[in-house]
Simulated assay, not measured.
Amino acid sequence: MPVKNIDIESEIINRVTDNGLSCADAFEIAWKLQIPACDIGAAADRLKLKLVKCQLGLFGYKPDKKIVKAEDFVSKELDDAIHKCLDDGKLLCVKSWEIAAALNLSRYSVSCACETLGIKIKECQLGAF
């Protein structure tokens, strides 16, 4: 049976803090309801909620909005994995997650490597960017 908007919105409202829904909570809801993450992002928009605490560190942090930082060193293995997945010179959010899982790294670490390499991440799975 399809999940109704009211069910999605109810799950979101139960997890809101400071008028925001964290990326991690959004994905937990998507997993629980077995729906695409972008549906959670769309519902958060309908509810006029901010998406916060991106797991890549790209948005939703105070006071500077993003926390991702360039690193001193990026391993050849990570560099190669990132470059192999580029789409028009940028890395898709979903690909950054896949790389993190494949290399047993945090998602944030992949994002920091991209920052070091001057590679932008695009197409947030929640629709934030």
Rank of each mutant, 00 (worst) to 15 (best):
M1I: 03
M1V: 00
N5Y: 02
I6P: 00
D7W: 03
E9Y: 05
I12K: 02
I13H: 02
I13Y: 00
N14I: 07
N14S: 13
V16P: 03
V16N: 01
T17E: 13
N19V: 05
N19E: 15
G20K: 12
G20Q: 13
L21K: 10
L21Q: 06
A24R: 13
A24D: 10
E28Q: 07
E28Y: 05
E28A: 01
I29P: 04
A30C: 08
W31Q: 15
Q34C: 04
P36T: 07
A37V: 04
C38L: 11
C38I: 14
D39W: 05
I40F: 09
A42C: 08
A44T: 02
R46M: 12
L47E: 15
K48I: 09
L49H: 07
K50N: 08
K53G: 11
C54E: 12
Q55Y: 10
L56P: 07
L58C: 10
F59E: 06
F59P: 01
F59A: 14
K62N: 08
D64E: 11
D64F: 08
D64S: 13
K65G: 02
K66C: 06
I67V: 15
I67L: 13
V68G: 02
V68W: 07
V68C: 13
V68R: 10
K69F: 03
A70N: 11
E71V: 13
E71R: 10
F73P: 01
F73D: 05
V74Y: 04
V74G: 06
K76F: 08
L78F: 03
D79C: 00
I82M: 02
H83K: 15
H83E: 04
K84D: 10
C85L: 10
D87K: 15
K90D: 14
L91V: 09
L92S: 09
C93G: 07
V94Q: 09
K95T: 06
S96D: 07
I99A: 06
A100K: 01
A100S: 05
A101S: 14
A101I: 11
A102R: 11
L103N: 04
N104E: 14
L105P: 05
S109M: 07
S111V: 06
C112K: 02
A113N: 07
C114L: 05
E115N: 09
G118W: 08
I119W: 07
K120E: 15
K120F: 02
I121V: 13
E123P: 03
C124H: 06
C124S: 05
Q125F: 03
Q125H: 00
